[in-house]
């Protein structure tokens, strides 16, 4: 048993435990915090697989941005009122369905590796002709050549989603005063220099 195997067991044990805690803690904020712990441990497993680029991207995107917004929303909840546990089995069917899909996918992966776990080494280096490059370079050179269309397409989808959400939330209300910086710092025609005679004053 090597150190890397030991760390793998450590990471995966914490990963499983914290994902269990995500669905079993009563406090939604604790759930999100455990979810973040799960993300971090998944990133750790990526590092053990020598997929350091994916690990860092996982942390930056999911933990650093998505989960922050998650926590942001959940923190505002008045969770003491949302603790009703009477219909806990309400989401059972869809949960089972999703679980089955995941198990099926895992089985497909295992069949593809022909049940030989040493083939999992492939994961860190899936493409033969990039074996001499770091995986950041390998991902870049495959993403921007063979899969450039899909890459662009996903970019366009994200753009559409962004524009859509902005349009949905943008409201132009009447009577709201906004700061227009260019107008504020613009002195032309806004400032008048007046010579004031003492004792008389001026009308402005």
């Amino acid at each position: 048993m090597s150190i890397s195997l030991l760390t793998f067991y450590l990471f995966s044990a914490i990963l499983l435990l914290s994902s269990l805690m995500v669905i079993s803690t009563k406090n939604p904020v604790h759930s999100v915090l455990f979810l973040i712990l799960a993300f971090l441990n998944a990133a750790g497993i990526f590092v053990i697989l020598h997929a350091e680029f994916l690990a860092m991207i996982l942390i930056i995107v999911y933990v650093g941005a998505v989960a922050v917004l998650f926590l942001f929303v959940v923190m505002m909840l008045d969770f003491k009122t949302s603790l009703e546990k009477d219909n806990i089995l309400q989401y059972m069917p869809i949960g089972l369905l999703i679980g089955l899909v995941f198990i099926a996918e895992l089985v497909i992966v295992l069949i593809n590796t022909r049940l030989d776990l040493s083939n999992i080494q492939i994961l860190s280096n899936p493409l033969d002709n990039f074996s001499d490059q770091s995986n950041t370079e390998a991902i870049g050179s495959i993403l921007y050549t063979n899969y450039v269309l899909y890459f662009q397409l996903s970019g366009v989808i994200l753009l559409v989603a962004m524009v859509g959400s902005i349009v949905l939330t943008l409201r132009d209300r009447e009577g709201v005063k906004r700061q227009i910086v260019s107008e504020q710092v613009d002195r032309e025609g806004k400032i008048e220099l007046v010579d004031v005679k003492s004792g008389e004053g001026v009308d402005i």
Binding site: M56, I59, I60, V63, G64, V68, M75
Partner: peptide, 25 residues
């Protein structure tokens, strides 16, 4: 001396917000 050093720093500093969020909540 890791290959993705700058991404590592970026990731760690993006995690820094959690200390503050957790403290505030």
């Amino acid at each position: 001396n890791i290959n993705v050093g700058i991404l590592y720093i970026f990731a760690i500093s993006s995690l820094g917000v959690y200390g503050i969020l957790m403290a505030g909540w």
